[in-house]
Nucleic acid binder design. Sequence first.
RNA 1: GCGGGCGUGGUGGAACGGUAGACACAAGCGACUUAAAAUCGCUAGAGCAUAGCUCGUGCGGGUUCGAAUCCCGCCGCCCGCACCA
Length: 889
Amino acid sequence: MSRYSAAEIEDKWQTAWDQAGIFRAARTKDKPKYYVLEMFPYPSGRIHMGHVRNYTMGDVIARYKLSTGHNVLHPMGWDAFGMPAENAAMASGGHPKDWTYGNIKDMRDQMKPLGLSIDWSREFATCDPEYYGQQQALFLDFLKNGLVYRKNAVVNWDPVDMTVLANEQVIDGKGWRSGAEVERRELTQWFFKISDFSADLLDALDTLDNWPAKVRLMQENWIGRSRGLQFGFERTDGGDPIEVYTTRPDTLMGASFVGISPDHPLARDLAETNPEVAAFRAECAKGGTTEEALEKAPKMGLDTGLKVRHPLNPDWELPVWIANFILMDYGTGAIFACPAHDQRDLEFARKYDLPVTSVYVPAMGEEGTFIPPEEGGPAYVPPKPETVRYVNGFAGAEAQTAHEAINAAIALCEENGVGHGVTKYRLRDWGLSRQRYWGCPIPVVHCDTCGVVPEKKENLPIELPYDEDGSPIDFSIPGNPLDRHPSWRDCTCPACGAKARRETDTMDTFVDSSWYYARFTAPRADTPTVMAEAEYWMNVDQYIGGIEHAILHLLYSRFFARAMNICGHLPDTAREPFDALFTQGMVTHEIYQTRDAKGRPVYYLPEEVIEFIGKDGKKRAFDAQKFGEGPNAAAQLAQFHMEGKLAEHDLLEIIPSAKMSKSKKNVVDPVNIIGAFGADTARWFVLSDSPPERDVEWTAAGAEAAYKHLSRVHRIVAGITTEPTEAATPEADDALLREMHKAIDDVTKGVESFGFNAAIARLYAFTNTLAKAQAGAAAKAQAARALAQLMSPMTPHLSEELWQMLGGEGLVAHAPWPLADPGMLVEDSVTLPIQINGKRRAEITVPRDMDKAEVEKAALAQNAVIRALDGARPKKIIVVPGRIVNVVL
RNA sequence: GCGGGCGUGGUGGAACGGUAGACACAAGCGACUUAAAAUCGCUAGAGCAUAGCUCGUGCGGGUUCGAAUCCCGCCGCCCGCACCA
């Protein structure tokens, strides 16, 4: 084959890999195992460039590890349950199952041409009954072990679609699909007891050295540990004390009132006899539970008329208010307010004319004018706790800092029998019930006599019904089809055998993705996992996915691994499932945009515009239809622009680095790219230019350049194998082989440290070296074989082809990774830059091991140095061996 | 509000505290060609009095023989969390 033909090459080598079965993973003691996993895709129907980037990175690691003698597990599956399938069924008829499996087939067909080193024999979809049946088994085990329970909870309810919405699905207080005003509704829901693991999930973050610091920090904040004082306020009417939790007991002497949540049991009790309280609670119940809705809500309150005694001064009475800004599910649902040092409390106190008393004032000398909160200033939160003056504290006058004051306050209160110090977490239990069809059914039964009864394991899987008594399930009716499906819903009680109702809620799809990594170790087993397999393959050595999963998916998976360990489905060593995590950036693409008469954006496809270089040298774009296409359209436009004949408003705006989206017409379909240039080009491009954790901008020019480079490599190697040997010197051979070893060293380090862009830059440089080398045929062939190997994780098909052309043995995918010879990495002589006062002025080439004094002498003999010294003696000469010389005047 | 990150040529980006701009894109010039494409070669941070010098990694300071890199203070952009007591 004389020319680079990606289509032929890629087809040929994919078949060869298949036949050799080299990506099939099985346990063995001969080699160390390596489990590399990319976050599995949702089967939307099309793969996109983000998938290509994600799976290519995983594939680079997988193939590299294969070459370095590891037993590699690199599986792929489908996160297949979820709302889009139901929405598609609602929009265009059909069934979510057909839609989903059709999409999986399409996406698999689109993915396979990428040439990923995946063990497809382990593939599964989470909507396979064999998978979700095992998930139901897990649920029952969790139930037995007290890891899942039922309780009432306030949720976002869409009254039109008749389902619970996740917070992300509520936009401006309205359902994202129906547009209906969302209600807060109380429902009985299933919850995972993730909050039992708060401390462990937080503390164990410290052990995840190979996770991005950013992700660990995000999880830390999400779990949200705080240390504070919990105590009871005694009521003057003799009722049960009101328990409050505070992280600021140091401000107790600035207390103004006690506030309780509208959902607090006391507020509920009062509402039964007091219509005003009932009305206030109803008012607060309006609006969604989203942060957005809460933030916009003004502070509202109602004085209950109740009074409590200050814990440190029984004569001091404080009023009890119901306030809408107090959350029932944090702390105790009740607070004491110190308006002087808390902005929310201050807003509330101002609105209802409650007292404001400072405990702190700024230290002497602190800058800026200070208006005490009492006199209308903002709440004073000490900017630097160490500079604060503690003026109104209780026996805590010796406290120098706010932090000390807090600890002193906790200690003092404990001594006086007022409450105790406690640690609280922000993390709440995970509500998993969804009123949807296309999810994993929760395997329990509701019986009038026995209550909630778990299904028997032998009845699993509780399979979703495909049709309803012969006719397809109708998804055009709002609500959950399972609810109105009598023959599925009605069942017998597993305990007493009486007539009972099946639970019709299904599980949150995050449950499906919380343990799939474990299932891949034994995907066909009739238990959730097989201990021997899990012990061998777990943990995932390298997990790769998007930063958008930094919290929920990764936190849930960490919880699930612990819970599965408790139930005997994972070994103790797999309580943290992902040893290393890498979060990759997006693939973006520029947008061509203009605005219509009403100022709304209008987008253009790349083929609808003509690009040209403007008079300022920057890229411009023009509506192709308006101009008319022609062979010289771009040149003409550039000319017109130069002459000022184009009105600015006729030019399209070019917005770089935008997330790919259909509506913005900037999607690049991988299938088209593979068709035009081949998979190796797509893989090479998404890895080059940008560091993998950062976004990479897709450009047509960049893709073409990648293709040209691969063609060039093919051409160079073809030249080496066919052209007659030129006269070569041993020096040229040696120089080339030294460069080869340096390239091996650099590329290996790049691949191991996720420096793919740097590795690729290094491969470009090495290719240039090889192309220009004056070495003999044997040395060139040796260097070319190394090049083929070093490229093989990124461009596996081309590398196989080159390997074959160069007479390499077997498959390059199986060939041992080349090793850099340390002796070849060091040169006999080094070139040192000579600085004068830190500025580079000259350079000298000296033997590598020349001693410092000699180097100094050589440096001082340089013309530039002599000129600069002008006869004077240098103050100091710094010689960093092998690095630099700095002459200080 | 709290927490974190980033700022380097026309562009994407390199650079253990040690020659700033590797590698690539876009651009320009040249070779080959009837021509174009492809390919190959060369140029390229800015400026100037051009064997060389000055300036230059958002801005202002500091530490250091030496700072894109470390420290302090600003400015700008991005991300996460948020009536969390």
